[in-house]
Amino acid sequence: MASLKRLETEFPILDRDFQSFCALRGIFTVQDFLIHDLQSLVADAEQQTSSERFMQAINQVLCVIDGLHRPWSNGVELMEDAQKNKHVLSTGCEGMDFLLRGGLHKGQVTELAGPSSSGKTQFCLLTASTVAYKHMGGVIYLDTGNSFSAKRIAQFLNQISRPAFDEMQPIVLQKVMNSILCQSVFDIFSMFDVLHCLESKLKSQMCRGDNDEILIIIDSISSLITPILGSSGSQGRALMVSAMSLLKKLAHEYNLAVLVTNHTVGGDGGIPKPALGESWKTLTHVRLLLSRDCGSDTYHVSLLKHPSAASGKAAKFIINN
């Protein structure tokens, strides 16, 4: 965070006198201001000979601090933003869309948990295809286990468009496939890398007003997080929380839907429950638990948590081969 010395070039009122006044109280950066009691600082400043200049300087720093947080918005603005920008993306699965009140909501992070071979990756691929085709939006697919299959995507796309054509026009297929970007990431640091790059790209696109990315899929986020969640120490959890914070920020500021998958572990009585523990539970907006009976192609999904629907609801769906 900016040091006072650096700010002097922009705001000459923060001169050397003021800097040494602050340095005496252990304040060197704007960040130090934040963790300092401003009232006692003001009281101190009033005792000084050049109190007027110091007060001006403190007010100047307060203005800088005012720029550090997001602007307040009132309910009407929020409502308009939600109605205009926070659309719902159909997943291509009727049962799932019904459960999720229409599908994946932009601005929200949806977690899909389930044991191995319960259809998580299939669902991700289907959603990627549906969103790219029906909503004509870009999809960022972060693949952590080399399970992304372009062939399967093409297959899904052909299924989705079947009522219109027998086989999708190669040109259309190519265009839709081009809007799904797959990136392999194998540790949380490269995920941060990708997301930070994406953020700066989205920021510049936002200025030009052409955002086409509308969905981020991370399959599976738990394989990135599990290795860093050691038994002791807070670094791992700190990384997990900041990663989710970044995802929620991207989702809200740039109107993206985020879908992440999680594996399951045995809970009470051997019933599978989502992995990653207690502190993970609060991080996502929507939590789904997926399961499949052995040998059948019917998937069962139940809602563990949703911001606007009662939890506990369940649905069934089939993903065609």
Binding site: R70, N74, G75, L78, S242
Partner: peptide, 12 residues
């Protein structure tokens, strides 16, 4: 009523 509601999100 909504105008009475002010909202801010903090990421850290």
């Amino acid at each position: 009523s909504m105008r009475q509601f002010s909202y801010i999100r903090c990421y850290d």
